[in-house]
């Protein structure tokens, strides 16, 4: 039960069984045709909106990291925590893999983190984040988060379809994966606000023309912010850190004091 976000309103769907009997019976095999016109995304989108409102009332900025497995989401998080964990309180919802390994890597840095058990799902949805966020708030330090980072399941297809209630969606492609990801997985790029090209320390060893990948992504989504860096060498990483600092500031600035 939670009185902050009003989640009790979502759970009694089956209770009110409004039986609109329409006056005529269908007992003699006559069929009825009913126009519905309802989105199958509606339930997730409604939950995502309520998550976002919840984050807003708690003055939390939420970001959703999407990439193929191994693009460097957890590494990005570790280095981000090392660099700005003292000035911004970060909290993490790990959805990537079943084992507690990624969450343990984050917790080792003294940051509240929980591992979602997704039952092998290929994406996270808004109700998983709703539950996960409540769980996270009970962790030590979970009550004073400024920046919530959600590490989505490693997959460039399915996660693109599900709004989690994040303020910014961030898609990552690492240099060894090659530059054709925007063309192959357009929805991840059209629904994101930020595109990170990671592992640029490997550029000498792989054929990854950064300007071309950037151009292809911008053709799909001209408002995308593109950054290229290496988390491990630190090259270009300050731009990402400044982006996060600004983001926390602007979203906070919009809140009533």
């Amino acid at each position: 039960m939670c009185d902050v976000c009003g989640c009790h309103t979502h759970s009694h769907g089956d209770k009110h069984d409004h039986s609109h009997s329409h006056g005529h019976s269908h007992s003699h095999d006559e069929s009825v045709i009913v126009d519905i016109n309802r989105s199958l995304f509606a339930a997730n989108d409604a939950m995502a909106r309520s998550n976002r409102e919840h984050f807003d009332t708690e003055k939390i900025v939420a970001i959703n990291l999407i990439s193929s497995p191994g693009s460097g989401k957890t590494t990005l998080l570790e280095h981000t925590i090392d660099r700005i964990g003292k000035e911004i309180n970060i909290g993490v919802i790990e959805g990537d893999i079943e084992t507690d390994r990624d969450a343990a890597r984050i917790r080792a840095k003294g940051v509240p983190a929980i591992q979602l058990t997704t039952g092998g799902a290929c994406h996270l949805d808004a109700s998983m984040i709703h539950r996960g966020f409540h769980q996270l708030q009970k962790e030590p330090g979970g009550d004073k988060i400024d920046l919530l980072v959600i590490e989505n399941v490693g997959n460039l297809v399915c996660p693109a379809t599900f709004d989690l209630g994040e303020h910014r969606r961030v898609v990552l492609v690492s240099v060894p994966e090659g530059p054709d990801k925007p063309a192959k997985y357009p929805k991840a790029f059209t629904t994101s606000q930020v595109f990170l090209i990671t592992k640029t320390d490997l550029l000498p060893y792989f054929d990854f023309p950064v300007p071309e990948a950037t151009r292809e992504a911008l053709e799909l989504n001209p408002s995308l912010e593109v950054m290229a860096f290496s988390a491990t060498s630190g090259e270009g990483f300050d731009i990402w850190l400044d982006y996060l600092r600004d983001l926390v500031k602007t979203v906070r600035g919009k809140q009533p004091a």
Binding site: H26, N37, R38
Partner: peptide, 20 residues
């Protein structure tokens, strides 16, 4: 020009049901 903006097309809608 290569920047083309899509309108709609991202819907998933239950349009109609026939039942008895």
């Amino acid at each position: 020009d290569r920047i083309l903006i899509a309108t709609q097309g991202d819907d998933l809608i239950l349009r109609q049901v026939e039942m008895e």
